[in-house]
């Protein structure tokens, strides 16, 4: 299932039937199957096919086939007489395809191959996928020897399950944090007060984030709401301009007047504030005192010129003068 194809792939369906699907995918697949007739039908088809494959009969060659093969082997001189006598008279039944996938499959009522230790471990560890688990259980039901093997492994697993976690000594965490502070090249830890402010801001941002649209539909609604004021204003402007006595030139003239009036009023307010402000009064008084003491005024003038020249020099060195090449070595 992907963006281009909304249906389950045949690989997914087979993995689902084989019990090989990862646990987190099982529920979505089941949900999809419950609502999708096409995939449900395909699943049914796979189930039928697997059942047919399971029931395939073993194909046995003619009785003379074994003799012919042995005669050929004897002719090569690699087969001794005792071994030829040990050859089974009949070909063993062929296990069905999925049973052959199971390591250690017994192949019938009289087990000749048993569950491997790995399979027994996976069985006890809960690591066997569904179909293999069923087959292993079926085998165990018929095979006492393998049941004995499982019984031998069970104490190992029960012992492993009882292993506890071991605890570090008290104060371990504090020592780690201390070492971290001393050796870390991480960013400087945020002070506790600032951290609280950051936490609060983060919480507020998170709360605000809940109102952020997440779906195309909700984005559409938000966009529509945002456009409404613009549409209202444009409609009103259109209505005003449509009046026969109103023209664009008249509107521009009106706006120019309003701007000029606003600038004039702001200038008058600034002039009045400057004249009446304590800063202006202090500056006026200072100027008067300097006029009364020419030496101090001269010193102040020289100081101001010195600072100005220094500022120009710094500006020249850092901005205008060519800087030496600085290499980066990683």
């Amino acid at each position: 299932m992907n963006d281009s194809n909304p249906h389950l792939s045949s690989d997914t369906l087979q993995a689902y039937l084989d019990g090989e699907l990862p646990a987190e995918q099982i529920e979505p697949v089941q949900t999809h199957l419950a609502g999708c007739r096409r995939c449900a039908a395909e699943l049914e088809g796979w189930q039928v096919l697997l059942a047919e494959l399971d029931d395939l009969p073993a194909l046995v060659p003619s009785s003379a086939f074994g003799d012919r093969v042995l005669a050929g082997v004897r002719a090569t001189g690699t087969l001794v007489a005792e071994e030829s006598e040990a050859t089974p008279a009949t070909t063993p039944a062929r296990p069905s395809w999925w049973r052959r996938l199971l390591p250690g499959w017994t192949g019938g009522q009289t087990p000749d191959r048993h569950l491997t230790p790995e399979l027994i471990q996976d069985l006890l560890d809960g690591a066997l996928p569904g179909r293999r688990l069923v087959m292993a259980r079926e085998h165990l039901a018929d095979c006492g020897q393998c049941r004995g093997q499982v019984a031998e492994w069970e104490p190992v697993f029960s012992t492993l399950a009882e292993i506890p976690r071991l605890e570090p000594s008290p104060g371990f965490a504090d020592r780690v944090m201390e070492a971290h502070r001393a050796r870390s090249r991480a960013p400087t830890p945020v002070p506790a007060g600032l951290e609280r402010v950051l936490d609060w801001a983060e919480g507020a941002a998170r709360a605000a984030g809940r109102f952020v649209p997440t779906t195309p539909g909700s984005w559409g609604v938000l966009g529509a709401v945002a456009v409404v004021p613009t549409l209202v204003v444009m409609t009103l402007v259109g209505a005003v301009v449509a009046h026969p006595l109103v023209s664009w030139e008249a509107l521009a003239t009106f706006l120019r007047w309003r701007v000029a009036d606003g600038l004039g009023a702001a200038g008058a307010w600034a002039s009045q504030w400057l004249i009446q402000s304590p800063v202006a009064m202090a500056a006026w008084e200072l100027a008067g005192q300097l006029a009364a003491a020419p030496g101090a005024a001269l010193a102040l003038l020289i100081g101001a010129w010195t600072l100005t020249l220094a500022a120009v020099w710094i500006l020249y060195r850092n901005v205008l003068a060519p800087s030496p090449q600085v290499g980066r070595h990683e």
Binding site: P187, P189, V190, E195, L198
Partner: peptide, 14 residues
């Protein structure tokens, strides 16, 4: 923790 918050380090440690 990337921002240097000690409480985050402590919680991971716990």
């Amino acid at each position: 923790a990337c921002e240097g918050r000690e409480r985050a380090f402590r919680e991971l440690l716990v």
